[in-house]
């Protein structure tokens, strides 16, 4: 149930992220819903779940866009591992943590993707100013969307009884 819910949540995040209009004035930044899902599982689950969420979210993002398969997997897994290291040292359930994660995680992902895409010759002509404004836009959107996504997943888990199972485990 726990795993099935994770797959459903990440697929929903991918579909909604794809349909949401980009923030044109901020380098077409998109609300990082998939990344929010990954960070949620990195903060609230064990290593295996975290890795599964990161790989699945990366595959979804790469499949639904022109990014070569594996680039987002690498970026999402890197962020998930980084955040997972702090799981026991931070208040994973508090709003400031979600807002801070929403600001920091998109910076790491967009920079990692920029380096991968430019070094692979896929987006050679993209000016750095575009990347900076995109990163800032994603971070601002992340600060708003991360708490909403976290609250949404947690609410679903509570309703389906997954939360109590997790705590018992």
């Amino acid at each position: 149930m726990n795993r099935l819910l994770m797959w459903v949540v990440l697929c929903l995040c991918a579909i909604v992220q794809a349909i949401l209009p980009p923030w044109l004035a901020m380098g077409q930044a998109k609300a990082p819903l998939l990344l929010a899902g990954v960070v949620y599982y990195a903060l609230s689950r064990g290593s295996l779940h975290m890795a599964e969420a990161a790989v699945l979210a990366g595959l979804l993002q790469d499949s639904l866009g022109p990014i070569p398969l594996g680039f987002s997997v690498l970026a999402f897994t890197g962020v998930a591992l980084l955040i997972h290291q702090f799981q026991d040292r931070i208040f994973a359930d508090s709003l400031p943590t979600h807002v801070l994660a929403g600001f920091a995680a998109p910076v790491v992902v967009s920079m990692a993707l920029y380096v991968l895409l430019v070094s692979g010759g896929y987006r050679a002509g993209v000016p750095f100013s575009f990347v900076m404004s995109k990163t800032l836009g994603m971070s601002l959107l992340g600060m708003v969307t991360f708490p909403v996504v976290f609250w949404g997943i947690r609410d679903m888990e509570v309703r389906l009884g997954v939360e109590s199972l997790r705590r018992a485990a």
Binding site: A14, Q28, Q61, G65, P66, S72, R123
Partner: peptide
């Protein structure tokens, strides 16, 4: 949908 990542 639009490009999910916003890079294209």
């Amino acid at each position: 949908a639009r490009d999910i990542s916003g890079w294209w």
